[in-house]
Amino acid sequence: MEIPYTVTARPDTGLYNAKVGIWLFLASEVMLFGGLFSAYIFLRLGATHWPHHILNVPMGLFNTMVLISSSITMVMAWSSLKMRQFSNYRKWLGITLFCGVLFLSVKSVEYKDKFHHYGIILNSGQEITGHLAMTEEEAIHSDVLKIKPDPENAGDFLFQLKSIFSKPEGEEKVLEIPKKEIRWWSNFVPKYNTYLATYFTMTGIHALHILGGLLVLGYFWGPGAALYRTNPEHLANRVEVAGLFWHFVDLVWIFLFPTLYLF
């Protein structure tokens, strides 16, 4: 049995079925991320302290540029299919896939950086953040924590930019803090504070969406592209639907970037 309205529009909606389907799905996705953003607002309003510029802004900006570029290459891939330019379609979709992989790679570097960044809460309530001057294993068993504290200008754009390519300056001083003076210490993982829990939850779910999008787009770049020989318009419709999902993921990042990295 042939599935109806995969190429031609249904008379009542004026659209092919998959397009209605993807928009219904995206509407449910709006609710998913809407729920996460409302949780973010609620937690932020109730927080006594909310960190500012502790994430690497240049890296986040770079990833924003990567996703914006991938949105354009995605729409160009679909546009090429509509104009029956198959080699251009493969080229633009290939760049989109590259951008998606690049985004996830940068994200994993950011995550790794956070896993090696530590915070110490002293008995007085004072917080010291920085990088350990000893291995984690040594830190667990030692009576003293050795930490290179973050400099005052750790939130500056230029400092963060330099720290991507070289060892951060101003981290030479090593503090030795006896554990009896420490109330709590941990690396920057979700349990560290509400902000990081929110950051990892929201960006983690977003990254899973990128991964899902890459799998689908990878299929249409590879084996799925064979449909072009028999029904190019059907392939164009499939790519349009996958593209709408990709743009939506980009759109979510457009809001994640300022809320988590900038303000």
């Binding site: 909606t13 004026g14 659209l15 397009k19 209605v20 928009w23 219904l24 995206l26 509407a27 709006v30 609710m31 809407g34």
Partner: peptide, 15 residues
Amino acid sequence: KKTIHHLIGLAILFV
């Protein structure tokens, strides 16, 4: 088409 506008409108309304 209007169908899509209505769907988006509904999603925004719920959010």
